[in-house]
């Protein structure tokens, strides 16, 4: 069964009608230039932005799913997290269990997974951009949802942590969850199961990254000449 279904989902002047279906256990990347509608599509699919059309999670219309249940079904990581108060790293990660009755399950593991163990007591507003990004990813991990919506999760990360996140995403999808993330690094996009290309608010390609991310398409979408070499696939050692 599809975990996410979009029918004619559109946001005036930002995203033209999009149809999309994501099955369970798929690692999907959204690529496209700045302002192409990646975040708009992600937020609409995550039910965080009012959009026209129909959004279904697990076959149910989004509007019929109670807010608390939504908090367990999907997890969202924004492009850039703003922290106004000095909550500790552990406390922010623990917020991911809000819809589960704040049981604190998996927080210690998530902190360790994102190298945040030593920062657990640090106020989040004193962290670097990359550390904040890892905190938000760890928070989404403890939600243990069916689908992850990650908006440019790798943007602020160094190469080691970026590859760790991809490895984690692979593990999550192997365990049956679906990950939909936007990203700019086309080399990393090649490691995913599926790539969706957006340009000017239109979905212009969808499929296997090797096929979809063709030189011609990349040139027409990004306006630059791209050459693939053997060095696409990166592995963490």
């Amino acid at each position: 069964m599809s975990v996410l279904q979009l029918k004619n989902v559109a946001v005036p002047s930002r995203l033209n009608p999009v149809d999309l279906e994501l099955p369970e256990g798929q690692l999907v990347g959204l690529v496209g230039p700045n302002g192409s509608g990646k975040s708009t599509l992600l937020m609409s699919a995550a039910g965080l932005l009012p959009a026209q059309g129909e959004v279904k999670w697990g076959g149910r219309e989004l509007g019929e799913i109670p807010i608390m249940e939504r908090g367990r079904f999907a997890a969202w990581v924004p492009q850039e997290a703003q922290f106004s108060f000095g909550f500790s790293v552990a406390s922010v990660v623990g917020q991911g269990r809000f819809a589960h009755g704040d049981d604190g399950l998996g927080v210690a593991e998530a902190l360790a997974r994102f190298d945040l163990g030593k920062l657990a007591d640090r106020p989040v507003n004193q962290l670097s951009g990359g550390e904040r990004q890892r905190v938000m990813l760890a928070r989404s991990l403890v939600v243990a949802p069916n689908i992850y919506f990650w908006d440019e999760p790798l943007a602020a990360l160094d190469v080691k942590h970026a590859l760790q996140v991809l490895e984690l995403a692979r593990e999550l999808t192997q365990a049956g969850a679906t990950v939909l993330m936007s990203l700019h690094d086309l080399r990393l996009a090649m490691c995913l199961d599926r790539a969706i290309v957006l340009d000017g608010g239109n979905l212009c390609a969808d499929g296997d990254p090797e096929t979809v991310l063709s030189n011609e398409l990349l040139q027409s979408v990004f306006g630059v000449k791209v050459e693939k070499t053997d060095g696409w696939n990166l592995h963490l050692t």
């Binding site: 937020m43 995550a46 965080l48 807010i67 608390m68 249940e69 939504r70 908090g71 367990r72 999907a74 997890a75 969202w76 924004p78 997290a81 703003q82 922290f83 106004s84 108060f85 909550f87 406390s91 922010v92 917020q95 991911g96 809000f98 819809a99 704040d102 939600v143 919506f149």
Partner: peptide, 19 residues
């Protein structure tokens, strides 16, 4: 608890299950 989540952002709070 909802105020904790809200003070880190409305969208983020909503995504975690806060009305």
């Amino acid at each position: 608890r909802s105020m904790d989540l809200l003070s880190l952002g409305q969208t983020e709070a909503q995504s975690l299950g806060v009305d």
